[in-house]
Design a binder for these strands. Sequence first.
DNA 1: CTGTTAGCGCTTTCAT
DNA 2: ATGAAAGCGCTAACAG
Lengths: 363, 363
Amino acid sequence: MQKTSIKKRVTLKDVANAVGVHVSTVSRALDPRTRHLITPEVAEQILKASERLDYRQNAAAYSLKTNRTRTIGVVVPDITNPVFPPIIRGVEDALASRGYVAILGNTDGDMRRETGLVETFRSRGVDGLILASVEREDAAVSKLAAEGLPVITVNRRVDDSTVASVVNDEAEGIRRVLTHLVSLGHRRVANIAGPQSLSTGAARYAGFEKYRGPMGLADDRGLVVFANAFNEAEGERCVEELLASGAEFTAIVCSNDRLAVGAIAALSRHGRRCPEDVSVTGYNDMPMVERMQPPLTTIRIQSNKVGFEAGQLLVQMIERPPGEYVAEHIVLPIELIVRGSTRAIHAPNGQDGDTAKPRVRPL
Amino acid sequence: MQKTSIKKRVTLKDVANAVGVHVSTVSRALDPRTRHLITPEVAEQILKASERLDYRQNAAAYSLKTNRTRTIGVVVPDITNPVFPPIIRGVEDALASRGYVAILGNTDGDMRRETGLVETFRSRGVDGLILASVEREDAAVSKLAAEGLPVITVNRRVDDSTVASVVNDEAEGIRRVLTHLVSLGHRRVANIAGPQSLSTGAARYAGFEKYRGPMGLADDRGLVVFANAFNEAEGERCVEELLASGAEFTAIVCSNDRLAVGAIAALSRHGRRCPEDVSVTGYNDMPMVERMQPPLTTIRIQSNKVGFEAGQLLVQMIERPPGEYVAEHIVLPIELIVRGSTRAIHAPNGQDGDTAKPRVRPL
DNA sequence: CTGTTAGCGCTTTCAT
DNA sequence: ATGAAAGCGCTAACAG
């Protein structure tokens, strides 16, 4: 019946005409917050008509008028890095439930691209920004926040505590890993630390330095080596460096899973088996690491939740009267996941254990 | 100097005032396509001023006027599924280079959510849609295309060839896998087929049926079992089913990597080692499958390129005079990646091989 | 309770 | 080559 080949979009005016009222009446009836201003019967009719005509608000007109787009910009280093999709998914779920959508951009870790993306997003009038790509020093981001644009960093944070954030409890994650290793009898534990320009890398390394002494671990400088990026290649390089330095260790704490994957590969290339010869731990519990050989002992972060909380918090910031909020900082708990890549020192199998003081036999 | 705490956004009018010309002149000077209408010197001044004042076009106003948003909607089943991020990344790269951005939505395979998302996106006036979530029968999608909204499916397609698509050469992928298996001496090859409601599942299964006879493989019905979803759990279930049926096979062709991962897990649970007892192949070459034990032999699709081509093609469709295009269908070549999960039947190691007719010894 | 009016910032005829 | 003016669809005073 109503076969319209090239259908023009139906507007408020169309609905108004259909019902025989003024556009503004329709506008009010359609907005739940102002619906009470309208006679219930009329409102009813309007709702019905708008349904029947398949009316949908013109987002551009709404934005132009209200200066709000219900769109938020999400910036990640690279969506292809398995750490980020669950976070993004969490963000989108939170946003969708509140009628917002996300536009996404990748920086590949290039801070100039971050700046460019933020520009693009602002030009599109995003109501807020979620940044997973920040470095600890990020003047541009602080400025955004200062200018009153709702901004929140996720998974990472900037040093400037003026910028809201949702992150994981990094120090606690490292503490758990170390506790686990100590309980397995390890005393010489190396650390492949992540980039110190990122809050994750810095916080995990800080945790390592903070706890290793008190826990009775050797605290040689030579047991720490810094990766320049959170990837497999750097994990391999760092193991090479560790091995070349002649440092002695029975376990390696890696600042994330990808470093750990690289580390295990490099170890095996040098005839050092994991976990028989050296235990290795990761961080993040990204997809598939439970299927690796050996399955990786790691810290599980609540990726989806981190994103979800960030999305929720950002919407709150947006919808609160301007300047009414202080930057919140949410820290989510983590979980230790023990798998096959760690085992008691020189013991035949790698059961989770509180093996009090395992015998330490020389080779 | 120009410290403005709560800075209003600068508009065309601001630039016009600064230069002492009319807004329309500024508008023309700023658009490369109309710049030639303006005296070069004036244009120069305007460009400078707009730079200096940090003018950025108001996307909402532009959209309202032109009915174009430079935004495209991307719908995927779940961004958390490792197959999709590279595709999305490709799409975004293509779009970004043309000044477009993507808004993203997840359906979790629920067709009603797909419909809802498409609604939301249309309400936001997207210029086009890229769908990675379609089933083969999808009346809603055909309708969209018929209504003149540029739509393109990626990775999957709908049966209705009216809808443009960018996909992988599924039949060829299966042919390569079978050729490889045959060269290793396998004659009884099972197939864990994907959901037949999806073009990928259907095309790969069709390839299997098409080639296995001509290649001299056993073509028992009992060697095929259908998964209800592309995930690990279904891979496990299908292997159980295969095993329970008493079917004999020395290899399993899985319709994607996740099915393969599940299949290998289930096999090992039943004391059948891969590749010693049965060879297994996947499809997609998703991240990390090269780190599994055993590393997975699979078909590598050009995920990033699939997305990139789709993005490019969509922009072309959008920017071409309406109704001027026919639905294109791009098919991208694939690549066989041989790893450890396949080996010559009953041979000691799994080198890639044209082992003509390997000896077949009974157990 | 509902209609009138103005205007968000931009592009695009139409004049000049 | 530039200015004037209209209008995209919507919301939000302000009147009645």
